[in-house]
Every structure is written in structure tokens, then in C-alpha cells.
Amino acid sequence: MNLKRRLLMSAIAISMAGALPSFAAAEGTIAIITPSPDNPFFKAEADGAAAKAAELGYETMILVHDDDANKQSELFDSAIAAGVKAIILDNAGADASVAAVQKALDAGIPSFLIDREITATGVAKSQIVSNNYQGAQLGAQEFVTLMGETGEFAELLGKESDTNAGIRSQGYHDVIDQYPDMKMVAQQTANWSQTEAYTVMESMLQANPGIKGVISGNDTMAMGAYAALEAAGRTDVIVVGFDGSNDVRDSILAGGIKATVLQPAYEQAQLAVTQADAFLKNGSTGVDEKQLMDCVLINGENASKLETFALTE
């Protein structure tokens, strides 16, 4: 029994030793840890980081934490054990992720954060986030213009426990509330979900048939709301989303949804890898830890240039 177990262990050790040199052959391995790729936004992050890493000669290890801080912590253990050179992370919670990033730092592995910040500074080497507030203001300004600065509208909120949901809503209102003729008649969460947005939109439309516009905290909810409006024969209602997904791009090109705001997820992930590379080679990223990336308004004019969260020229 004991012998068997020892044999098994050595077999595992040999196979691991066999696997390691293949990492070492390149510049080393970079771990890319993101939430679930069932949201194309996070998929774009992972793809962008992986593409840049490959370009710079790194191997990649792509991991998914499903917004579970505990799972994220385990993934960090695995990445540390695998001897990665750096970690690119879209984290699973501003407070809950600090310890994991610290753990990697203690093991001599630098982390580069994208999309969402953590509450501590000096632990990660970079924290590159989209300027959600600036993006929301862009979207809101376009929304107000499309509405002709007047009329009843509804707002679909994201998951209320998510900071970005609050920041976007704040950005929307800081612009829209300056126009006294813009009247919000309904505000509900649809938890970032297309299915929920569909039913919530139908009910809101029943309660407030005079709705002229809908501003949504993200693109999936905008898609759900537009499907409901279409079913109700109310394609005249102006819908504005946030994220810059391909689905909404197609809808904009087909004359459905009017506008969205692109968070440059792909570019952001690439930037994080570039900074990781600089840090590994020179011992410094050469820029501040906290960096904000501006969002870009997408409407009928530039929608055709949008592809998986990146604008092509």
C-alpha cells in the first residue's frame, strides 16, 4: 500500500518535472485569472492578455474564478506552485482579493490587476481599470441628446452588490439630472441578466406606457430590454447600453439599440501584460500603480469598427 502510494507520488513528481522545462523554454509562464468566460467581456480580457503574452514570448495559464474569492485564493496557490512569473487578474472582490495578491507577492510573484480595483495599494504592481464613471457620463450625454433632452425614461441597474453598477448609475444621473425635463419613471435591477431584463422591461412598460427611453447598466440587459420592446411593438423607445459587446454592435448596425459605451477590455488586458513584461525585465512598470482607461462612445457612426471589445482602425 505504502509502496504503491510512493510510486504514484514519484510518478506525479516526474510528470511535473517533465512539464516544467516546457514552461522554462519560453520567457516563463504568465497566469491569467478572470471571472467566468460565459460573459464575453471576460473572455475578451483573457484572449487579449493571452495574445499579448504569446507575442512577448510567454506561456500562459488561463484560470477562471467564477467571482468566488475562495476559489480565486486556491487558483493563486496553484499558480504560485506552478512557478508562474506574473499574474494578470480580474479579481473576485475588492476586499476579498487583497490577501491572495499579497500571498503571490510574498512568493515573489507580481500581480497586475485589470477591470476592478482592490482596496489596498502597494500590493499589486498595476491596477488598470476602465473609467466607468467617465464612460457612464458619455453614455448618459448621448442618451440625453437622443431623447431631445426631454421625456420619461427608465433605468435598468446592474447587480446592486457590484460597485460598477453603482458607479455607472451615478455617472448616468450626474449628467441626466441636470436636465429638468428628463423624468425617470422607473428604476429596477435586472442583475446584469438578459432574461431578467426582458421581464422587468415588460412590467415597467405596463406601469409606465409613456416611456421614451431606457438606459441600461450593461449590454446584456439592454439586449433583453430591447427584445421586450420589440415584442411590445415599441421599437421607437431609445435604448442605451454599456460594455460595447458584439451583440449590441449588431443591434446598433441594424437600427435597434442606439448606443453603448465601450470598455476597452481587450486593450486593457494587453496593457497589463506589457507592464508585466516591463516589470519582469526592468524591475519596474514605469507607470503609477493606479491607472484609469477612458471608455469610448459607440453609436451608429463607429459601431462597424467594433470587434470583441476593441475598436479597429
Binding site: D38, Q194, T195, Y198, M223, G224, A227, A231, D247
Partner: peptide, 14 residues
């Protein structure tokens, strides 16, 4: 029915 209502199907549906 949901796929048809949304004219899209998402793996997290349901």
C-alpha cells in the same frame, strides 16, 4: 420559449 423571446440564447439562462 426563452431563446425565442430574446432571439438569443445564453448558457446561463435558467
Amino acid at each position: 420559449v426563452i431563446a425565442s423571446q430574446l432571439q438569443a440564447s445564453h448558457p446561463a439562462t435558467g
